[in-house]
Design a binder for these strands. Structure first.
Lengths: 130, 130
DNA sequence: CAGCATCCGATCTGATACTG
DNA sequence: CAGTATCAGATCGGATGCTG
């Protein structure tokens, strides 16, 4: 995957980086630690492997995500946020996430809040299994 | 326009708020002051009136944008960011924009930077006319 | 100036089956 | 476990013409 070199507007790049249903969620899920493809797939409800791989590739191309492949069997791979660009974009994702939380609370949906009404369970998104 | 009330994930809402090619650009253009529809249209290169109106409506529905209509002829309307949600989302947009700037600089595109190499001309996006 | 409706091609995304 | 290929339906977005 190669990045266009004829962008004329920074926000056009930003859109290409973040577009689609899954990118912000993927970045959000990578915030704690490097994770395997299958772990990522399990942590994101509803995503197909095709979309996950495709979006991860784009994030890698733009320098937000790193991939580390280990030799041997079974195959093992770990994805992580890059310290600079990935972490910075995570800040933007956090803001968006918080606004989403606000709206859910405003709608009376407080299920995902903890006892103190501050933090939210897991990452605030439904997980695949237990 | 009515907002879904069955969201299960804050980032799902965030995506609905920001999805599409134009929302971040519109928020960015609204940061300085309230503007009319036609001014907005002029300041965003390539957007159609249909998309502009449609996206503004969605941003209003989610509480990021306010609209103020004045009586009399010619018709006059002003759009602005809401002080809370709109301004907060603008922070996320700024982060995304800055990452876009970084990538453009990395690609050797420095045309839009000012003499000091820090700020960028206009809003960093091409404008319609002069 | 502000706003709406329709048509239609481009793009995105999910399901499914297959490879190393 | 990690990753690829293909096909079909859904969604997105641009052009255009019309109303108050």
């Amino acid at each position: 995957m190669k990045i266009r070199e004829d962008y004329t507007c920074p926000l056009e790049i930003a859109h290409d980086i973040m577009k689609g249903k899954w990118k912000p969620i993927i970045l959000f899920q990578l915030q704690r630690e490097p994770v395997s493809l299958s772990a990522l797939e399990r942590s994101i409800a509803g995503i197909s492997q095709k979309m996950l791989l495709e979006q991860l590739k784009e994030l890698q191309a733009f320098g937000l995500v790193d991939k580390h492949a280990f030799d041997g069997y079974p195959l093992r791979v770990e994805y992580s946020l890059t310290p600079d660009r990935g972490r910075r974009m995570l800040e933007a994702v956090r803001i968006m996430q918080q606004i989403g939380v606000d709206i859910m609370v405003e709608q009376g949906q407080t299920d995902f809040l903890d006892a103190k009404g501050i933090a939210y369970s897991k990452d605030g998104c439904p997980q695949k299994s237990g």
